[in-house]
Simulated scan of single mutants.
Amino acid sequence: MTDTMAKVPPLVPPPVELPERVAALRAEVRAFLAEELAADRWRPRADTWLSGWDERFSKELAARGWLGMTIPPEYGGHGRGALERYVVTEELLAAGAPVAAHWIADRQIGPSLLRFGTEEQRQAFLPGIARGEVYFGIGMSEPDSGSDLASVRSRAEPVDGGWELTGTKVWTSGAHRAHAFFALVRTSPKDETNRHAGLSQLIVELDSPGVTIRPIPLLTGAHHFNEVVFDKVFIPESRVLGEIGQGWHQVTSELAFERSGPERYLSTFPLLTALLREAHQVDEERLGGLVSRYWTLRRMSLAIAGALEAGQAPELAAAVVKDLGTRFENEVIDAARTLLPTAPDPGGTGYARLLAEAVLHAPGFTLRGGTNEVLRGITARGLGLR
């Protein structure tokens, strides 16, 4: 082993096993989902954490204690661990359940408020998140910037009592329905020697004067993404998240939650299970390869959940899981299209609809949460290779 190789940090935290106590929780979630499906309250979908907006369902989960699971009780949560939350999330995604309404708030806004928010901010938002009543988006990407967050141009200028925000964000999932989002903005001039300096996070309430939300429809005509324009929007000082100038550090910590979860390889899981049911003996080697890769990704994602439960923020490992996971999701679609092609039927039921949905959503898999090229750059830098 060379000296360089000896210094390379591990890509993924050590593997963990789910504790026995979560078996009963998993069974409880499965029973609830079976009841929902039997009552025909929703149909399983591909990419449901983007497309499945159902506020009734989110409130049902909250009533059972399955939202805000890692939020402390003093803020309306349940004080449970990341591994217990992982089990609930895994079951919801595997079933193709409609989780989009609460998804961003529960996945990363809550943990970020606990880590960087003020006491007033926590009291203002966390109880509503845990009740499934407060929904958030993410305001990171901007026009012509791709996944290069260091090129953020939206700017907040200090004014009496707060900040005045001007700029544009794009690809903001659910902004037309959400109550607020975290916006990464520039609060001091760009420093070419340190492109990540001078960035801050603001909590923008989306009904504020000067906020305009415009739809970015999918090819299907469905409306999930948005362009959000700020025209001299006043942001009170009480809605600064964390410290001014520390936005980059805060965002990278937040991305560990966004990039590492089971949604990065389970968006097409309903399609994969339908393919396995329908294909039977069609190319068993290829199907077996997909299943084994799924299991490997699950082990990696679960290891990160264990690290999060231990209070760590494994940004490098999260980038690896997101890169590998989104490539896997596209391979599931490719296998389904070639092994069991069928006429598109977006409005139907079963395999044909799941395949049509997955194909239409596939272009976004490798973009949201950072393009694969950006993620590989993060991985290379983390390993000391760049």
Rank of each mutant, 00 (worst) to 15 (best):
A307Q: 08
S238E: 09
D283W: 10
I244R: 02
H249M: 07
R277T: 14
G311M: 03
S292F: 06
V240T: 04
E263V: 05
L241K: 08
Y265G: 01
E237I: 06
G289S: 14
A303L: 04
L275T: 10
P270D: 03
P270S: 02
T273R: 13
L241P: 05
Y294S: 11
R264E: 06
P262D: 03
L275R: 08
A305D: 07
S292L: 09
R239T: 03
L275W: 07
T268G: 03
H280P: 05
I244S: 02
G289T: 04
S260I: 03
E285W: 04
I304D: 00
T252L: 12
G247R: 01
E285P: 00
E243F: 02
L266A: 08
Y294Q: 08
Q246W: 11
V240M: 00
M300I: 11
R299C: 05
L287N: 13
E258L: 14
E254L: 09
A307V: 06
G311P: 00
V282S: 08
E263M: 01
W295N: 15
R299D: 07
P236A: 09
Y294V: 01
R239W: 07
Q250H: 10
S238C: 03
P236G: 09
T252A: 14
E309H: 09
S301E: 02
W248A: 10
A310M: 12
E254P: 03
L255V: 10
R298C: 01
L308T: 01
E285A: 10
D283I: 08
L290G: 03
V291L: 12
L266K: 05
G306H: 14
L266T: 01
S267M: 10
A256K: 08
V291D: 05
G247A: 00
L276N: 09
E254G: 02
E237T: 08
V240F: 01
L241I: 04
E285K: 06
E263K: 12
E285G: 06
M300G: 15
R286N: 04
T296P: 11
R293P: 14
R277H: 15
L276C: 04
R299E: 07
R277G: 13
D283Q: 15
F269P: 01
E243I: 01
S267N: 13
V291M: 13
G289C: 07
W295P: 13
A310T: 05
R298E: 12
G288H: 13
L241H: 09
E309F: 01
R239Y: 09
T296W: 15
E278S: 06
L271S: 01
L275N: 09
P262F: 08
L276T: 04
I235R: 02
R293M: 12
V282F: 04
H249N: 10
R286Y: 10
T268C: 06
R299I: 01
L290N: 14
M300A: 15
V251C: 14
A256M: 11
E237C: 12
G245K: 02
G288L: 03
R298A: 07
L287C: 11
I244D: 00
G288E: 04
W295A: 15
R259P: 02
F257Y: 14
L275G: 06
F269L: 05
G247E: 00
H249Y: 14
S253M: 09
Q246Y: 10
A307E: 05
L302V: 00
E258H: 10
L287Y: 12
